[in-house]
Amino acid sequence: MMMKWRGWALATGVLAVSALAQAAPPTAAMLSYACAGCHGTNGGSAGPTMPSLAGQSKEAIEVAMKKFKSGERSGSIMGRLAKGYSDAEVTAMAEFFSKQKLHATSQTLDKAKIAKGASLQEANCGRCHIEDGKEGKDDTPAMASQWLPYMQMQMADYLSGKRKMPEKMKEKVDPMSKEDIEALLHFYASVK
């Protein structure tokens, strides 16, 4: 109904009145700006336990939001917030963040772990975590420059079974030691 009225107003030029009463549905930017209080301006996070959304693929964000919505992925408040958006709104936000430049973080990292992680990444993870984790295959999230504390918390959830690991990831992660995993995360955090 509202769309029809707006269309009519636009078509007939009755805007002096309608401009006051009518507004277009929230744009992708409007929807996404609201996230920045926790995820940083344009999705570049300054908080070590909040992931950057900038530069994530559309698919990665859509899948994450779907899992938050269904409860498959636990995220404290993210489940409660994800339920507030339609699929179309989620897609609009996912597109918005996918267009933002990957957010470069400055973190204190261990050089030896980064080196070890680099070779592990190449041998095990590179087929899905493409370009040193700057990109991801299908819905694989970008890992490059992501906050180390955030990734450590997510990995702990994977290992405890709280968050379900994708089959291919599980095959690679299962044989790894704690030290291997830690080295990998240091590597991803270091990629700029």
Partner: peptide, 17 residues
């Protein structure tokens, strides 16, 4: 416990913004 940790990042992000 996890929300106490998230809250710290909330503050950091919103004040940085």
């Amino acid at each position: 416990k996890i929300e106490a940790v998230y809250a710290e990042s909330w503050l950091k992000n919103i004040l940085t913004e």
